[in-house]
Simulated assay, not measured.
Amino acid sequence: MFDPRKDNNDIERMYFQDDGMIPNHPHLPVLLYKGVWHTDPVGAESRFNRNGWSNSWVNGVFDVHHYHSNAHEALAVISGFVKLIIGGEKGQKIVLESGDVVVLPAGTGHKRLKASPNFRITGAYPGGMSYNTRTGEPGERPQVLQEIREVSIPDTDPVYGRGGPLTKLWLNRNN
């Protein structure tokens, strides 16, 4: 159960600027929920789906910089660990372990740097949105910048569902 008096402080927020190749999101932060599902990471995909985040999959993360300009993405590590760089080549390196969840606003670059042999991750999108995959090619820029601006804030948090912190944190970006 989500307790807004406590849990908002446990969610790390990271902001990234457009680096000329990876646009990132101009206003919304990446949200990192460390260890939120450590007791049952394997059930992450079904919890995403119950919380209104679907079109889900289980696999890995590409080892090239990429982003989705037309959808936000939630990722939950279900086994092992992964070291990612978020935000493009000059972004921030993070390590995610089994039970961690990261939510990437549309346009946010991500790339796998290293992973354990048993690494598995599940991804999902608000309302089951169909997502594209972009790599920062110069010809993408005008269209993807418009697409990023048009992606709406989800109705539910992928971890906590209705009333969860994502909507508040993304609507009130100064929190």
Rank of each mutant, 00 (worst) to 15 (best):
E45S: 15
D10S: 11
K111M: 13
K168D: 14
G161T: 06
N70R: 15
N172H: 13
I78M: 07
A71S: 15
I148S: 03
K168S: 14
I153M: 01
M1S: 14
F48P: 03
T167F: 03
F119W: 06
P158S: 03
T39H: 12
P105K: 07
G161H: 09
V151N: 11
D155N: 00
P26G: 12
T122S: 06
G60D: 08
E150Y: 06
F48E: 04
T133Q: 10
P142S: 11
R112E: 14
A74H: 01
L171H: 14
S116Q: 12
R120C: 14
K93W: 02
P41V: 04
T108R: 00
D100L: 07
E137S: 15
V103I: 15
S56C: 01
V102G: 02
M1F: 06
H66I: 03
N175W: 08
P26I: 12
G136S: 02
N51S: 10
K34M: 00
Q143E: 15
G20F: 09
P142W: 01
V58F: 09
R162M: 04
Y15Q: 07
H27L: 10
S46L: 07
H110A: 01
I121M: 13
L31N: 08
Q143N: 13
N49I: 14
N8M: 10
A115T: 13
A44R: 11
P126W: 11
P105F: 05
G123N: 04
T39F: 03
Q146N: 12
L84M: 12
N132V: 11
W57Y: 15
A71E: 08
A74L: 05
G35Q: 13
L113H: 01
V61H: 11
L169N: 04
H25L: 05
L28P: 04
I85D: 01
G88I: 03
T156E: 09
R141N: 08
V95H: 07
N132P: 02
E140F: 09
I85Y: 01
V102T: 06
Y67G: 06
D3I: 11
N175V: 13
I11C: 02
W37Q: 01
V61S: 09
F2D: 05
K6C: 04
Y33A: 08
P29T: 01
T156R: 14
G87T: 03
Y125W: 13
